[in-house]
Amino acid sequence: MTDMAVEAAQVAQSDTPMDRARALSAFKFGDVSFYWITRLSAMCVLLILGGIIISLIVGAWPAIQEFGFSFLFTQRWAPSAQPSPVLGALGPIYGTLLTSVIAMAIAVPVGLGIAIFLTELCPMSLRRPIAMAIELLAGIPSIIYGMWGFFVLGPFLANTIEPAIIALFAPIPVLNSIFAGPASNLSLFNASLVLAIMVLPFITAISRDVFATVPPVLKESAYGMGCTTWEVARNVMIPYTRVGLIGGVMLALGRALGETMAVAFIIGNSFKITPSIFAPGTTISAAIASEFAEADGVHQSGLILLGLLLFVLTFIVLTCARLMLMRIERRQGA
């Protein structure tokens, strides 16, 4: 058998005499450097993550010292208050959570519905165009969603749908404060709806991919037993692909929590918390985007602290998702 190492080396430098040891050490050098290059790349991620956390904490420190835990529970946001600024994150936290929850409540059922339709019920000729349209939807830059929400969706909702909902719930005690007027172009609800449309493609695309992994034999046996399509989706496809689905939903939730430009356009930038979802509000990222340019001192530090909070919030969501998956898997195993 020919020595592969020497042969390869010979091709490279045919005029030098054979030197097996040297060729081998060249390979070893290649291996080691490859190992270190990949390892350093991986470490970069950790370094960047650590660097971001540290710089956020350093930037937020003056605000942490000034406000402490009251930052989390104060609604008042008054950077120019005398004698010293009062900053509280309750409004942005509330807005961030509320818009994300409403967005997910709309996007998850619709997204799953589209995915089930595409994989189970859709005629072949329609499948490609719909899938393409969804992928295109995912590719639209968020500022365009913001402009569309501002110029088209907002006025449409405020002039037609919202007044109807407000009138409908006006006589019902609790609901009339949740759906209280005036209908506004810029509101938490409008922002939630745009967010729902923005995260829809994520949920659909991922669910479609994971539904495609369901072994046909499982579905066919269910159909063979006389199951309806709904029963197959409900009892075979969704349980089988649970992990992937939750992953997709969490990815979408992550985007909804952090989405900035589209939301800053249409949420109304108000730090006040009102029970009405038709009232203007703000989210953490929208607040940072609209105030960072002119902020300084404690105000700037407070905005950085808001950024840190968003970081922590997203981290908590991801951790919860992991824990949920682990619990499901354990139950599965037992």
């Binding site: 008042r76 946001w77 008054a78 950077p79 120019s80 208050a81 501002f150 110029f151 907002g154 006025p155 405020a158 002039n159 506004s184 172009n185 810029l186 800053a264 109304g268 930038n269 108000s270 006040k272 203007p280 609209s290 002119e294």
Partner: peptide
């Protein structure tokens, strides 16, 4: 002040933002 604690209202960015919002909102 240049930025005050507004009791009510929707916030828009810049003169153009306020103009755009009023034009859009009945």
């Amino acid at each position: 002040g240049a930025a005050v604690e507004w009791p009510v209202g929707v916030g828009a960015k810049g003169n153009e933002g306020v103009a755009g919002n009023v034009a859009q909102t009945k």
